[in-house]
Design a protein around this nucleic acid. Structure first.
Lengths: 194, 194
DNA sequence: ATCTCTTGCTAACGAACGTTAGTATGTTTA
DNA sequence: TAAACATACTAACGTTCGTTAGCAAGAGAT
């Protein structure tokens, strides 16, 4: 037996918008495009939302929250920094794979946020990236990691992780957990045989 | 003594457009924005270009050519596949760092190309990615590389390389060559100490 | 001296944009 | 049964969009 949860119209709008923003981009998606996909008139959207940008804001900040929540299990890790980094990478990938469309919008369309949302968004991103850098620094200090530029390293790691939204298919053979493990395995141990 | 090469107006337009497309996105950049940055009227642009999209096409396909040309030195590498992969990564990063703005447009705005340019673009990208996959496959067959999914691996490598356009600063301390070396070192050998 | 090329202008086109006002209808709540 | 809410409509607003037509002025080439 399958219970069908009724989605609010606002939610439906947000989901369709997410798909459209992902495929055509925020700026190139018109409210009339969105309305048509929902089978209503453009003006009708405004019974449910305040503005086009509100939709973008909701998508971006909801995803930000998800990334933050996922970090909880990272802090619980008491093993070494390599283990902690693996946890972080897996948690991060899990969030992305749970909604690749929303992730794409999060990663590519945030620049269309207006102030003060843009500044708030960037501050959160900085903070989040700082957490990765901290693991790297701790791991280098303890001798677990090679000595590298931590910012350079963090950017490289996150770019690999963040790209998953472009190719991950939920119906594929790899689970989110498995994707995260492979990515962390690669970045921690490298491609070459020793 | 410095020789000043006079740039054609068309080139100037293309360069300003590259900067704008990079920072605001193609769809969110208007011809009036572009004209204003050049100190002329929007209509005047059309004495030099055929359409807004023509600019995007020129940027995207010029970058594609650059990536292809850079591959020449990769084919000359006769060492192992690890050496070849390093060459490929360095060559790729060199192209990106030579013009980070155009690279950003190339990576983020190609989807606004209309047919048949879009199909042509994607075919080239597939071909180019195939070259990376081939090195990976050869390297796995020869035992140089660990056995991994080659597509997954290729995507991970390229996402790391392609992200450089977002943070590389030509006036920074790292040369393009150095960036490429560090990236390949990391991806080939991993972050962890053995 | 004439021709061509480059560069730019004003004026305007039709289309599309995000959004608002005002209204109607059915559904849920009190 | 009345009030409140959810949902959607038509009509239209002012703005911006990419682009074209037609014209003009200066530079370089023949």
């Amino acid at each position: 037996m399958k219970t069908v949860v009724k989605k609010s119209r606002k939610q439906q709008i947000e989901e369709k918008a997410t798909t459209l923003f992902q495929s055509r981009g925020y700026a190139a998606t018109s409210m009339r495009n969105l309305a048509q996909d929902l089978g209503i008139e453009a003006a009708s959207l405004y019974s449910h939302i305040k503005s086009k940008e509100e939709i973008l804001q909701r998508i971006c900040f909801r995803m930000a929250e998800e990334f933050y929540s996922a970090w909880q299990e990272v802090d619980e890790e008491t093993g070494g920094n390599a283990a902690k980094m693996e946890k972080a990478m897996i948690a991060h990938v899990k969030v992305i794979t749970k909604d690749t469309n929303a992730s794409a919008v999060f990663f590519n369309e945030w620049r269309h946020l207006s102030e003060p949302f843009l500044s708030e968004f960037l501050a959160m991103r900085d903070d989040y990236e700082g957490r990765f850098k901290k693991i790297l620094k701790d791991g280098m200090a303890s001798g677990e990691f090679k000595l590298v530029d931590d910012k350079f390293m963090m950017l490289t790691i996150l770019s690999s992780l963040n790209w998953t939204h472009n190719w991950y298919k939920p119906d594929g053979s790899l689970s989110p957990e498995e994707v995260g493990k492979r990515l962390s395995g690669l970045l921690l141990n490298g491609l070459k045989n020793n």
